[in-house]
Computed example of a mutant assay.
Amino acid sequence: MARRKVTVPESPKCPVCKGTGEVSRTVRVGRKRHAVGAQTGLCLNCLGSGDAPAD
Results as ranks from 00 to 15, higher is better:
G50V: 06
G41E: 10
C46V: 03
S24N: 11
C46T: 01
R25A: 13
R33C: 05
V8I: 15
C17A: 02
T40I: 08
K5D: 13
K13S: 12
V36F: 00
S11F: 06
V8H: 05
K18L: 09
P9F: 06
G37S: 04
P15S: 08
L44D: 07
E22L: 14
R28A: 07
E22G: 03
A38E: 13
L47S: 15
V23K: 05
R28W: 01
V29T: 10
V27T: 07
V36C: 03
G37F: 03
K13A: 11
P15L: 00
T26G: 04
T7M: 12
L47Q: 15
C43T: 06
T7G: 09
G41A: 09
V29I: 13
A52K: 15
V36P: 05
V29A: 03
G21C: 01
V8Y: 09
V36Y: 01
E22Q: 13
C17L: 05
R4F: 13
S24L: 13
T26R: 09
P12Q: 02
T40P: 01
A54Q: 10
V16R: 12
V8C: 05
P12E: 08
M1A: 15
T7L: 14
T20D: 02
L44V: 08
K32R: 11
G21S: 04
L44A: 11
Q39F: 05
R31F: 10
V27I: 10
L42P: 08
K32A: 06
D51T: 11
V29H: 07
R4Q: 15
G41T: 12
K18M: 12
R33A: 12
A2W: 15
G21I: 03
T40K: 10
G37H: 07
G37I: 02
C43A: 07
P12N: 00
E22M: 12
S49Y: 00
A2Y: 12
C17S: 01
P53Y: 02
A52H: 07
K18T: 11
A52E: 08
K5Q: 15
G48H: 05
L44S: 10
S24C: 08
V16F: 09
R31D: 03
V8M: 10
R4E: 14
P15R: 01
K5Y: 12
